[in-house]
Amino acid sequence: MSEAIPTGAVRRVVATPAAQALIERLRAQHGELMFHQSGGCCDGSAPMCYPAGELILGEADVRLGEIGGVPFYMTRAQFEYWQHTRLVIDAVPGSGGMFSLEGPTGLRFLTRSELFSDEEAARLEHED
């Protein structure tokens, strides 16, 4: 099963109000959800939203935290690359990923990133 990344008060993944609203809309329609940051291929690198349990997680996946009460995962290899940044999940007009639940809504989830401050990075290093 996947491994949780300790975060304490420093959050590795957050959602904008627009993303929170889209999550609630999708939860009302589909029930419990999960996110996995796609690493490329068909949909590029995008946050993919699935019904909870639809994507089988394994040893190569890590849990970054939750957004809107929904768990958010990525592969360990991606995490090694992104570990110094906070992922900010937004919802913007456009077509979502082919396999992501928001596809037919006219909105898509989008990942932006911001570097952790020196203080946040030190706290994360101590916690990890």
Score class of each variant (00 low, 15 high):
residue 1 M to Q: 10
residue 1 M to R: 08
residue 2 S to H: 06
residue 2 S to A: 11
residue 2 S to K: 01
residue 2 S to W: 06
residue 2 S to I: 00
residue 3 E to V: 10
residue 4 A to P: 09
residue 4 A to E: 14
residue 4 A to D: 12
residue 5 I to E: 04
residue 5 I to C: 03
residue 5 I to Y: 06
residue 5 I to R: 12
residue 6 P to D: 02
residue 8 G to K: 03
residue 8 G to W: 02
residue 8 G to E: 04
residue 8 G to R: 04
residue 11 R to C: 05
residue 13 V to D: 00
residue 16 T to E: 00
residue 17 P to C: 05
residue 17 P to L: 02
residue 18 A to K: 05
residue 18 A to N: 08
residue 20 Q to N: 03
residue 21 A to T: 06
residue 24 E to G: 08
residue 24 E to A: 12
residue 24 E to V: 02
residue 24 E to R: 08
residue 25 R to Q: 01
residue 26 L to Y: 00
residue 26 L to K: 01
residue 27 R to L: 00
residue 28 A to D: 06
residue 29 Q to R: 11
residue 29 Q to M: 02
residue 30 H to W: 05
residue 31 G to R: 03
residue 33 L to G: 01
residue 34 M to Q: 08
residue 36 H to W: 05
residue 36 H to I: 07
residue 38 S to L: 03
residue 39 G to N: 07
residue 39 G to V: 09
residue 40 G to Y: 01
residue 41 C to E: 09
residue 42 C to G: 09
residue 43 D to C: 08
residue 46 A to N: 04
residue 48 M to Y: 05
residue 49 C to F: 04
residue 53 G to Y: 07
residue 56 I to T: 15
residue 57 L to R: 06
residue 57 L to V: 06
residue 58 G to V: 03
residue 58 G to M: 09
residue 59 E to N: 13
residue 60 A to H: 13
residue 61 D to E: 14
residue 61 D to G: 04
residue 61 D to F: 14
residue 62 V to T: 05
residue 63 R to M: 10
residue 64 L to M: 04
residue 64 L to N: 01
residue 64 L to G: 03
residue 65 G to E: 14
residue 66 E to H: 14
residue 68 G to C: 04
residue 69 G to C: 05
residue 69 G to L: 07
residue 70 V to I: 09
residue 71 P to I: 08
residue 72 F to W: 11
residue 72 F to S: 09
residue 73 Y to T: 05
residue 74 M to G: 08
residue 74 M to Y: 09
residue 75 T to Y: 12
residue 77 A to M: 10
residue 77 A to D: 15
residue 78 Q to M: 14
residue 78 Q to A: 08
residue 80 E to C: 08
residue 80 E to H: 13
residue 81 Y to P: 01
residue 83 Q to F: 11
residue 84 H to Q: 14
residue 86 R to D: 06
residue 87 L to D: 01
residue 88 V to F: 04
residue 88 V to A: 01
residue 88 V to Q: 00
residue 90 D to H: 10
residue 90 D to A: 06
residue 90 D to S: 09
residue 91 A to F: 02
residue 92 V to R: 11
residue 95 S to K: 12
residue 95 S to V: 10
residue 100 S to T: 11
residue 100 S to M: 05
residue 100 S to V: 06
residue 100 S to P: 07
residue 101 L to T: 09
residue 102 E to R: 03
residue 103 G to T: 10
residue 103 G to D: 06
residue 105 T to E: 08
residue 106 G to A: 03
residue 108 R to I: 02
residue 108 R to N: 06
residue 109 F to E: 07
residue 109 F to G: 07
residue 110 L to H: 13
residue 111 T to Q: 15
residue 112 R to I: 11
residue 112 R to N: 14
residue 113 S to R: 15
residue 114 E to Q: 15
residue 115 L to P: 15
residue 120 E to Y: 11
residue 120 E to L: 13
residue 122 A to L: 08
residue 123 R to A: 15
residue 124 L to C: 03
residue 124 L to F: 07
residue 125 E to I: 11
residue 125 E to V: 14
residue 125 E to M: 07
residue 126 H to N: 14
residue 126 H to Y: 11
residue 126 H to V: 12
residue 127 E to P: 02
residue 128 D to A: 10
residue 128 D to P: 02
residue 128 D to F: 13
